[in-house]
């Protein structure tokens, strides 16, 4: 009986060593390959081995998930079969298993998306989340995006989005200072700058940026780019392409077009998260540290076999 127990201890230990080694090697290798989520969704590494091992999408791969699942199961088995002896060590292993479980739930259940908002524009959260109940919906308007700098330098001190929530509540969102909007937490992720133009087509005026599309008399119109060599815009009206100059009337598609630069505006990129279990993760993480301290303070129990 004790011989079987010793064998079981060894088997569980060996499995842990193998899984840990495989995870170490795959994680290490995957850092050398740009992950597929960082590139276009259609991208796949030309290297067959990299694709087969999912090294170009390892962090989001089923392989990664399965290895962590095995680890979690092993942690629980080590406690059930008394492979870890002391109460503190058992608590430590169970805590870790719980942490992995909460991480799994969090990563699969949480709602997360990026919300790019241009200055002066307003967006609805429901336009980014399917089937969002009306009571959880909110409008977010970016009044102004600010980049305060360190005194005497041009280095940014913070990135601040001055928002108005539901058209009444002004809040400031900054790095390290998230805000809550109902069930959602908003985080200042990054920003972008765009050149804005006023496009006058006959007697109508439109505000737009490169790549935006708007409709004129049922036809899609877009200012695509600016050609630095010819110093003319590249513009499409319907299926036709035109090259109007800067701030001069130009005949295009039976209309008179004029493109007038308006300046630069910021686009604040806000990460919106509806978290699941994150507070529990913080608590479990701190408990894990505490139990590590306790486990290390104990005299080591001699492992048999």
């Amino acid at each position: 009986m004790s011989g079987n127990r010793t064998k079981l201890n060894l088997i569980v230990l060996r499995i842990f060593q193998i899984i840990a080694l495989v995870l170490i090697l795959l994680l290490a290798a995957s850092t050398f390959f740009p992950q597929q989520s960082e590139l276009s969704s259609g991208y796949s590494s030309p290297n067959l081995i990299v694709r087969w091992m999912s090294l170009d999408r390892f962090y989001n791969s089923g392989l990664n998930g399965i290895l962590w699942l095995f680890l979690t199961v092993l942690l629980v088995l080590a406690v059930i079969f008394n492979i870890v002896r002391t109460t503190t060590q058992k608590a430590l292993h169970l805590l870790l298993a719980l942490i992995f479980g909460v991480v799994f739930l969090n990563k699969n259940l949480e709602v997360r998306f990026f919300l790019p908002i241009a200055e002066g524009k307003e967006v609805l959260l429901s336009s980014f989340v399917d089937r969002l109940p009306e009571k959880d919906d909110a409008t977010v308007r970016l009044e102004r995006f600010e980049i305060p700098t360190h005194a005497g330098t041009s280095a940014p001190k913070n990135y601040i989005s001055h928002l108005v929530i539901n058209q009444i509540e002004p809040v400031d969102l900054a790095v390290n200072r998230p805000v809550s909007v109902g069930k959602f937490h908003l985080y200042q992720n990054s920003y972008d700058r765009v050149f804005y133009f006023r496009v006058e087509i006959n007697d109508k005026s439109f505000e737009t940026a490169f790549g935006d599309t708007f409709n004129v008399d049922g036809m899609p119109v877009s200012v695509v780019a600016f050609d630095d060599h010819t110093e003319k815009f590249i513009m499409s009206i319907g299926d036709e392409e035109f090259r109007p100059p800067l701030d001069q009337p130009f005949p295009a598609g039976g209309k008179t077009v004029r493109i007038i630069p308006q300046g630069i505006r910021f686009i604040s990129v806000i990460e919106v998260v509806q978290p699941v279990g994150v507070k529990w993760l913080s608590v479990l993480g701190l408990l894990y540290i505490f139990s590590l301290v306790l486990a290390f303070r104990q005299r080591p129990v001699e492992r048999r076999g």
Binding site: R112, V175, N176, P178, L186, Y187, N189, V278, L281, S282
Partner: peptide, 12 residues
């Protein structure tokens, strides 16, 4: 992880 969640909304 706690800091990253506070800053970027993503602990990992």
């Amino acid at each position: 992880g706690i800091w990253a969640y506070r800053s970027w909304g993503n602990y990992w």
